[in-house]
Simulated scan of single mutants.
Amino acid sequence: IAYTSLTFGWFSLSQGDYVAARARYEKSLAVMIELDDRWFIAACLEGLAITAAQTSTEESFASALWAARLWGVAEALREAISVPLRSFERAINEWGIAKVRSQLGEEAFATAWAEGRTMTPAEVSLLSPDSAAQERAVETVGASRADTPSKLTQPASTVTSLPNSAAGLTGREVEVLRLLAMGLTNAQIAERLVISLLTVKAHVRSIYSKLDIASRSAATRYAIEHKLV
């Protein structure tokens, strides 16, 4: 069934049905992880990366970040088993990679890709842009790396000092910026930090003003480039 889902994932992708393609890749990936079939795990991750790239926009920056991390994990897997991409796979992956690299910028893209190479397939799958996965990612990935916590997996509420690269932002604004860069909506940030939605919006306006930016994607790019996530 998992192999069939993977095949239909490619079919849905070729037909432009990215919602169906993602569902099929996710279904196949869950089984492949259980089977520890690294070749097909890599193929599922690449398929998910392509669907994320296809649906990413300037305002859905989190999808592009997730895609870069997915490709990073897949690349590490393929290197481990010495199985390169086939020609038809390489063509569509290169198209998606070019789109995501252009959207994120070279530095942010390279950072996300490198982060992916250090993750397991299960970890990166939890970082999908939907809110439930974001919550699980912070808890699950953070717990699995308790000995070497990273900025990506630490809850924003643990921030106690302001990084030099974020001079001008208050500690609370850094918390908001980090969660925003992880793809959380204003409502989700309010719930996470136990503050009102109006307060979150005020913090976002202040962040935009201090950083001289005008969009969530620009804020996310700033957070990545200044190692706030």
Rank of each mutant, 00 (worst) to 15 (best):
S128A: 15
A110Q: 09
P149S: 07
A53Q: 06
A137C: 09
G96S: 15
A181G: 04
E191D: 15
V83W: 04
L179K: 04
A67I: 07
R38W: 15
R38V: 11
T158W: 10
A156Q: 04
A108N: 05
R78N: 09
E59C: 01
A52C: 12
E139P: 00
K210N: 03
A23R: 12
A114M: 03
G16F: 10
A112D: 08
L65R: 10
T57R: 15
T158K: 10
N164P: 01
R117T: 11
A156T: 03
Q54Y: 11
G9A: 11
A202G: 02
Q15P: 00
V83R: 10
E175G: 04
E225K: 01
A80F: 02
A98P: 01
S165T: 07
V174C: 05
T55H: 06
I207G: 00
T185I: 02
W66I: 10
L85A: 03
S14D: 13
T153L: 08
G168P: 05
A20G: 08
E139S: 12
R221K: 12
E225P: 00
A68Y: 06
I224P: 00
G16T: 10
A181W: 05
F109N: 01
S82E: 15
A80I: 03
I97W: 02
E191M: 10
A49F: 09
L13I: 07
L228A: 04
A202T: 04
